[in-house]
Design a protein around this nucleic acid. Structure first.
Lengths: 345, 345
DNA sequence: TTGTAAGCGTTATCAC
DNA sequence: GTGATAACGCTTACAA
């Protein structure tokens, strides 16, 4: 194993100089800097991680806690994980993958042992059990999602209210006047209602401003429940021509129900989905959809973490930030300008 | 921070005793063992990771290198990553997520710095640049996939030959006599041909044994190339009734081409896919498919890694293992017994 | 069955 | 602008 003292001998400097050169934490003359770097390269020196962690009291590792349970769209989680990892590397950090099956004890362990300098939590629930654990340790944390009480930590999430508003806006622009909003089932609203409610609120508000008549209905996402939901909508508001689907699971059922009931999309009914781009493109017709910038979510989370760690190191109290990322609506084949309804002859 | 010396004082024992109790590396009387564990729990002691790594010369961390490039089916990679993580935890190891954008330098870094005790490589190419880097360091490595020259490291992969054989077997059992095998494009064969070729070999062999007449054709997986491939197959072998699709990208095109050319699946043509279960279920009709045990892949990789690390620690030369996991065929709606062809009236 | 103490290879404080 | 050196908190011979 190549140690710092091999470099010391090879470059003819002290170990502190080598350390300072490598960490950039002290002004070094170009001459010695060059010599040290050359020796490092020549010898293939890689500072020992354990020693570095012990002496520096930080591991340069960020723990990323991934959800396991069904119901999360895997490719999105993976994309976030990857953007977290690459962003972390750019800051000289590595990423430790922690699954949720250890529960709150998992984050406690990695934080208390100094294995990780900070923790990024994905798929946060409103009343998340891991948050008190993190606070108790004084661990730096960034959440992807918004919990009930985010004090003492930073969060980042999509601007779901803006997403809801975009849906209303788009359908209004296309001349639709009666809209149905198909939401999630009650389970979701209880567990991490945050985004579900925020979307609905944003939608409602903009729909009101644009003079839309609208209806919102919960939906479990099964074929049966979607059928029931659609039937009620048609019964209550037969002139509904626009649909906003929030529950991704209901998209497939909705499309085939519309089809089998003789309404074609987008001629007779426009459908806007709130879902990832990849999903929207899988359907036929491809769905006009509102989605947030996935990779950005990971990038921002890491940037926040780095800021917190830097502040904490300087003895400053890290600022709790809470940015919301702006979603975009991508028009595809499932929405169209409202045409004059064909009268039955 | 709670250190081992806090436990020492609280339990009235020496630091080595605490260490031995926690690591189980020495016989300890039940009495002291109990006292130590109680103190540990009471004080909430978590051994400092950096110190542990430095003193013990191992990090209890396994690096998992994930592929980034398009063309890999993300949910599968994620599933493997999760099974790697949970299995590693059962052995007291954590998992460091490494992406491939650092190239061979990434594995060199985590290994040489002692950040990771070993490296698990996913999506291995035949002539993988990271392998020489690992060998040069003497790093313990396990590959998911089979490279050209696997000496000095362990591998685990699906038994693709068995998978190919299962396809032939199934179609033969259903009475099909003329089969077309739709493979990958030339790019795949060059990059990591391993599995592509092995599958084809297994298929060929069993097809021969069962007296099938067969044809194999490469396919890039685009709609156009699939159309071309299918056209050639029909031209060369008009009586073909069974299709084996290896290139997942060609599945969608193939199904719609068969449909639009008036052959219905499974009445007129049976289709067997070589792909993950999740994918097979997404199509209409749901595909009869051969797939390997995904989670098992991660589990076995970690078990092999642990064995290598244990051996190496004992001063023994780790054994290079190379297990192949047995795939299974799940019959769904895309295959059926060959019916007597309808004569045009 | 338990204790003593010498490292492990950095970082960061102090001194120059 | 550079050097010497004392931590950092464990593990693991070696002793008893």
């Amino acid at each position: 194993m190549v140690t710092i003292f091999d470099v010391v001998r090879h470059a003819g400097v002290s170990s502190s100089t080598v350390s300072y050169v490598l960490n950039g934490t002290r002004r070094i003359s170009e001459a010695t800097r060059g010599r040290v770097l050359r020796s490092v390269a020549e010898l293939g020196f890689h500072p020992n991680a354990g020693a570095r962690t012990l002496a520096g009291r930080r591991s340069h590792i960020i723990a990323l806690v991934m959800p396991l349970h069904r119901g999360v769209y895997v490719p999105i989680m993976t994309e976030i994980a990857i953007s977290v990892t690459t962003t972390a590397r750019r800051h000289g950090y590595d990423v430790l993958l922690v699954t949720n099956d250890e529960g709150p004890e998992g984050v406690r362990r990695v934080a208390a042992s100094g294995l990780a300098d900070g923790v990024i939590l994905m798929d946060v629930e409103l009343d998340d059990q891991r948050i008190p654990a993190l606070r108790a340790q004084g661990t730096q944390a960034v959440l992807i999602g918004l919990p009930d009480d985010p004090h003492g930590l930073s969060c980042v999430d999509h601007d779901f209210a803006a997403a809801g508003a975009l849906c209303a806006e788009h359908l209004a622009d296309l001349g639709h006047r009666e809209i149905a909003f198909i939401g999630y089932g009650s389970g979701v609203y209880q567990r991490h209602a945050g985004y579900a409610e925020r979307t609905l609120t944003g939608f409602r508000e903009r729909a009101g401003q644009r003079g839309l008549r609208f209806l919102d209905r919960p939906c479990e996402g099964t074929y049966e429940s979607t059928a029931g939901t659609l039937a009620r909508i048609v019964a209550d508001r037969p002139r509904t021509t626009g649909f906003v689907v929030q529950n991704e699971a209901a998209i497939g059922p909705l499309l085939s129900l519309l089809h089998s009931s003789g309404r074609s999309v987008p001629e007779d009914a426009s459908v806007v989905a709130l879902c990832p781009e990849q999903l929207a493109e899988q359907y036929a017709p491809a769905l006009t959809a509102v989605s947030g910038p996935t990779r950005e979510l990971g990038r921002v989370a890491v940037d926040q973490m780095i800021r917190r760690l830097t502040d904490a190191r300087r003895g400053a109290q890290p600022e709790d930030e809470r940015p919301l990322l702006t979603p975009t609506l991508t028009p595809r084949q499932s929405t169209a300008r409202l045409s004059v309804p064909k009268e039955p002859s």
